[in-house]
Design a binder for these strands. Structure first.
Lengths: 141, 141
DNA sequence: GATTTTCTTTAGCGAGGGTAATGACGTAGT
DNA sequence: ACTACGTCATTACCCTCGCTAAAGAAAATC
C-alpha cells in the first residue's frame, strides 16, 4: 500500500468521523435516539426482524433492544407479533408513521449536507458526486 | 440542484453515517469515550486550550468538559496549568502518553479501513483516493 | 468601589446502554 | 418419551455520560 493510499485512508477516516458527528446534530425527531433511528432504518430496509437480529445489527445487547422496541411500540412506530414457527421469538416491523419520520429525517440531513456542499466549487463537487456510489459500496462491504 | 446531485448527497450521508458507526467500534483504548478521544484530538491539533474552548469545540457543556478533563488528568493524559493572565481560566495540554494513544488509535482504524477497502477494485479505489481530500474539505467547512 | 460578566467547578438528575439472572420455548440425546 | 441443554426475549439492577442549575472566583465595566 503506497504512501498516497495511506494518506487517503487517513483522510477518509477522519472526514467520515467528523461529518457524521455533525450530521448527528441534525435530528428531526428529538425524542428518538440514534440507535432507535437505526432500528427504524434497518426495519425499513429488511421489512421485519426479531429483537435478536436487530440487536446484532445495531451492535447493542439484547436487553437494550427489548427496551428500545418497547419504547418504539409505545410510540406507534413499530409492531410486535408472535413468530409464526417459534413461540420464543417475536417479529418486529415498522409502521407507516415510522416511514414518515424516517423520510423526513433523511430529507433534513440531505438539506443540511447540500448546504454544506455549497462551499465546494464545481470541480470538487464533481469529484464527490462520482465518489458517492463508491463510498456507498465501501460502507456496505 | 439536479436529481443526480440529490442522489449523491443521499449516498454521501448514509455512507458517512454507516462507516462512522463501524469505525467507532475499532477502539484501541476501551476506557476512553469518543468525546474524550475527541478532546485529545483537538489538544493534539491546537496544542493547548481552556476547558471552555474545548467544550465549544466538542459541542459539550462546560460542566461536562470539567469532568472529562479531570478524568483525563487522572489518567495522566492531560495536564492542567493556571492561565498566565487570567486566573479564572485553566490551560489544558496533552501529554506524551496521549499522543501515543492517539497515534495507535488512528493506526488501528486506518488498518481496519484499509482492509475494508481491499473489497474495492482498482478503479473504485482510484476514485476514492481522489475524493479523500475533497471529503476532508467538506467535513471541515 | 460596586455591579455585572465570564470562566470553572460542584450538585443533582435523566437518558441510554451493559451484565446477570429468569422464564418460556425449542432441540438433542438416551 | 423424557431429560438435559441451548436459545430467545425479558426483567432487575448498575454505571457511564451528558445536561441544567447554582455557586464561587476572578476580571471587566460603570
Amino acid at each position: 500500500m503506497s504512501e498516497q493510499d495511506l494518506a487517503a485512508i487517513s483522510q477518509l477516516r477522519s472526514s467520515t468521523m467528523r461529518l457524521s458527528r455533525r450530521l448527528k446534530h441534525q435530528r428531526v425527531e428529538e425524542s428518538l435516539s440514534p440507535t432507535e433511528m437505526g432500528v427504524l432504518g434497518t426495519l425499513a430496509r429488511c421489512g421485519k426482524a426479531t429483537p435478536g437480529e436487530l440487536a446484532r445489527k445495531e451492535h447493542v445487547q439484547p436487553p437494550s433492544m427489548t427496551r428500545i422496541v418497547a419504547m418504539l411500540e409505545e410510540k406507534g412506530l413499530v409492531r410486535r407479533e408472535p413468530h409464526p414457527e417459534d413461540r420464543r421469538q417475536v417479529v418486529v416491523s415498522s409502521t407507516e408513521q415510522a416511514e414518515t419520520i424516517l423520510a423526513e429525517s433523511r430529507r433534513r440531513r440531505n438539506v443540511w449536507l447540500a448546504e454544506l456542499a455549497q462551499g465546494l466549487d464545481e470541480e470538487e463537487w464533481a469529484v464527490l458526486r462520482e465518489a458517492a456510489p463508491v463510498l456507498y459500496k465501501l460502507a456496505h462491504l
